[in-house]
Design a protein around this nucleic acid. Structure first.
Lengths: 329, 329
DNA sequence: TTGTATGCGTTATCAT
DNA sequence: ATGATAACGCATACAA
């Protein structure tokens, strides 16, 4: 009866092949077994369409070959790209990936961590915003873009160098009065270093700069107002802007168009992330490109290194500049 | 000894609380239990930081509350959006989602199906391209955009109606000579119906039309050539184009710019999918919008309906038109 | 080299 | 109402 509704088990295979249970297990796991036995077992496996039960394996071995990825969503192209490359990196190592879209919700993040732990994942990779996220000691965790304490490795691009590179590029392209525009999470995370890097770059190149930092709750309109206020006689007092993301760069460029400022002739724009049209065509703006495939590989590598005495608290990967039409080169 | 390396189990809780194993199970599952016992067990759970083991539950119950999503990637914004909304729909029902990025690779698709089955998922949702994909009878499967046989439900937007709507829109906006451009998989799938719908719409509105269908392996350049050939005295002989995706619309608009054709003044463009800038800002082109959240909900609903006598072989969900700058309205 | 038996953490059936 | 016990499917230590 049960045979009709449920999948065949090793016991079924053993009976079919006329061998013992342990022999089947060995064949399945590629352990040495008498040639004739192996053939018989393989035939039976084929005949019954047998598939191992990962849940039974996982229960027995206390290892599930599963990791969870916590990320706000896959709508935003940067997150989407991260999810893709992490998925690929895990696959390559024969790990399954449970996707957890957290929608920036700290409570949901915590729920997912709990769920993942109950699911006995071998590790969690998280780009999270909950400053007090509780993770069991015995669950390996790798954080993206935010330090979560000395025992949890954090992987990010070199945000400071990225900010610096943006400043240098603008200076090289002739800008003398620039500004940094930033919105998004006010949490203490790695992307915050873009500001310091930019400042540093401006100082070393001797160009004057301003900062406009919006906190979490501020409406986008404040940027519009900021820019309007810096227009005198129809001319913007900045000739270069560094925006904290490509997304913001896009919004700003739309605003500038409404304000009759030409990009890049009147003002040059550099964004951050390296987003492309439809994921793989051209860059949507001149930008500091995050090495997403490398970030993904590094996260997975760090997560699965069981026997690493001490894991690095912070790994910064190199960024690069890419032209995308919003600068002169 | 084991206690230090592995998570606590019900047995540990039972010992800590001084009750029997079964009692702990009942408390965990909210079954009636003596008040004083319940308190003691809950205290012990809290103290030990006990978490149920989903793998043990799954093994016992032959139910894992897990589904797999097979999709080429999360880089393409349409796939990315689908992945997000399916993830959300599953979460709402307390199902975990294993993400399987197949990269359009039929062999990889089959591997993932096998993996999912070994992982005893309760069902699979797949947007796949393997015409001979083998799925166990007893694994519920819902397909997106491609019919896979009478017993496997297929969910898609109403592609025929979408094509028709595109034709009608172009006609309404004054077009008299239009063309349909298509590339991508030559497999027999639902999006193919966009062509028939478009044709139908053109005929009913009495406007003349041409088709340019590229097969899988054809290079994009053939579109460029096609358009060049239709330019006489600097003027394109089409005043409207319907492109099979927003992505193609973008590429075509770039080509038209190089050919000195203005969009939308000289030629109006309508795409398909409803992709937005950075996932959530404005539409990248005038487009036929797929109802992605509804598609996601429908897939999950169909997948998890255990006691549905007969599942619908094909569900088509309504599309809508959205202005995105590449038409006159 | 092959077979047997135990246990992984749960749930559920049975006595008590 | 509570406690003991078997079974889920598999891996493995051990016995044959």
């Amino acid at each position: 009866m049960r045979r009709e509704t449920s999948a065949p088990t090793m016991k079924d295979v053993a009976r079919e092949a006329g061998v013992a249970l342990g022999t089947v297990s060995k064949v399945v796991n590629g352990l040495p077994v008498g040639e004739s036995y192996r053939i018989r077992v393989e035939d039976a496996i084929h005949k019954l369409n047998y598939q191992v039960n990962s849940y039974a394996q996982g229960l027995k071995a206390n290892k599930t070959y599963t990791a969870a990825l916590l990320i706000p969503n896959t709508i935003n192209p940067f997150f989407a790209s991260l999810a893709y490359y992490i998925n690929i990196a895990l696959m390559k190592r024969h790990y399954r990936m449970i996707l957890c879209s957290t929608d920036f919700d700290p409570l949901l993040e915590q729920e997912y961590v709990t769920m993942a732990q109950q699911n006995k994942v071998d590790g969690i990779i998280g780009l999270t915003y909950n400053p007090t996220l509780i993770v069991e000691e015995n669950t390996p965790f790798v954080s993206i873009d935010r330090s979560m304490g000395p025992h949890i490795p954090c992987v990010a691009c070199d945000n400071f160098a990225g900010g610096q590179l943006a400043a240098e590029k603008l200076a090289d392209l002739g800008c003398r009065n620039v500004a940094f525009l930033r919105n998004g999470s006010s949490l203490d995370n790695e992307p915050n270093k873009r500001k310091a890097g930019f400042e540093n770059g401006c100082l070393s190149r001797g160009i004057s700069y301003e900062m406009k930092i919006l906190d979490d709750s501020a409406p986008y309109e404040e940027f519009e107002q900021f820019l309007s206020e810096h227009i005198h006689n129809g001319k913007l007092s900045f000739d270069g802007l560094f925006c904290v993301t490509d997304r913001l760069t896009y919004l700003i460029s739309e605003t500038l168009r409404r304000l009759n400022q030409r990009v890049p002739e009147d003002v040059q724009l550099i964004g951050f992330d390296g987003i492309r049209s439809f994921g793989d065509i051209d860059y949507r703006c001149s930008t500091i490109v995050q090495p997403v495939p490398e970030i993904a590989e590094m996260c997975v590598e760090l997560l699965l290194q069981e026997n690493m005495r001490t894991k690095p608290p912070l790994v910064c990967l190199p960024v690069s500049y890419a032209y995308g039409g919003t600068t002169l080169g």
